[in-house]
């Protein structure tokens, strides 16, 4: 009660106490950018942004990243935001995945990281992903994507981040993606680092693997709502599985997945 009085005296108003005249907002751990592509954005040279003064797609600085330029030409930057309040303003005014055309993608990445393997922040990383048959999951996909975004912006995917046992003081998460295809949906969580797929005895690598697995388990159980032991693979469906970007590029059978 006393604190409440004090807060009022200081004039602190959140959106809950005054939805129209609030004077404080909740900052996010990181700023985020939403990107979008679909067959309709490809090769049509749509304006990157119709609003002047709106930052253009960042030009990659490294040789590797310039390879991503062609890829990025078809991907449209929708908006950036850095507060909880702004996230919801966007969420409430944009199309949910269930209503996207086929072969469309939303990419929600930390500001300054482009949704491409070649970005400095992604090149040593990998992704957790799950593929879900469209027929059965159309009623669930919007909630699954929302919960995935909330775990990303709330920064709760990576519990090692502030546990004091961190390998890297940085969050491992770089971005999250939802993809719509004719017969399935895919959700992905991109990480900054990936454990070695050859299974070394290296202590650092073992810890990283543990940390990455924790993210996958959290994704499967808390975000998607499956039980720990639930087997998900089936026609058009995969388990929750992790693959490093380097192994994805190989396209061969050598690629070793982690499954939770």
């Amino acid at each position: 009660q006393e604190v409440d009085m004090q807060a009022q005296a200081e004039g602190i108003r959140t959106v809950f106490s005054d939805p129209t005249n609030f004077n404080v907002k909740h900052p996010l751990y990181s700023a985020w950018t939403l990107w979008f592509d679909s067959p309709a954005t490809k090769g049509r040279n749509l304006p990157q942004t119709p609003i002047s003064g709106f930052p253009q797609t960042p030009v990659p600085q490294t040789p590797g990243a310039s390879v991503a330029l062609g890829w990025m030409e078809d991907i449209k930057r929708v908006i950036s935001f850095d507060s909880v309040e702004e996230f919801w303003g966007l969420y409430n005014n944009i199309i949910p995945p269930s209503q996207l055309p086929q072969k469309a993608n939303y990419y929600l990445f930390k500001e300054g990281i482009i949704p491409a393997w070649e970005d400095e922040a992604n090149k040593n990383g990998g992704k957790w992903s799950i593929q879900l048959p469209k027929d059965k999951n159309r009623p669930n996909i919007d909630k699954m994507w929302l919960y995935t975004m909330l775990a990303a912006i709330g920064e709760t995917f990576d519990p090692y981040l502030t546990s004091g046992e961190e390998i890297s003081p940085q969050s491992l998460i770089t971005g999250v993606i939802v993809s719509t295809r004719p017969q399935f949906y895919r959700l992905s969580i991109w990480t900054r680092l990936a454990p070695s797929s050859t299974g070394t005895e290296d202590e650092q690598d073992r810890k990283l693997r543990e940390r990455v697995e924790t993210i996958g388990k959290h994704f499967k159980t808390s975000v998607l709502g499956y039980s720990d032991a639930h087997k998900l693979a089936g026609p058009l469906a995969t388990e929750v599985e992790f693959l490093s970007h380097k192994d994805s590029e190989k396209k061969g059978k050598s690629a070793k997945k982690i499954i939770v």
Partner: peptide
């Protein structure tokens, strides 16, 4: 609606 949100049809988001 965020001030900075472009018209969705202008970026092919329909």
């Amino acid at each position: 609606k965020p001030d900075m949100l472009p018209p969705l049809d202008a970026i092919g988001l329909e």
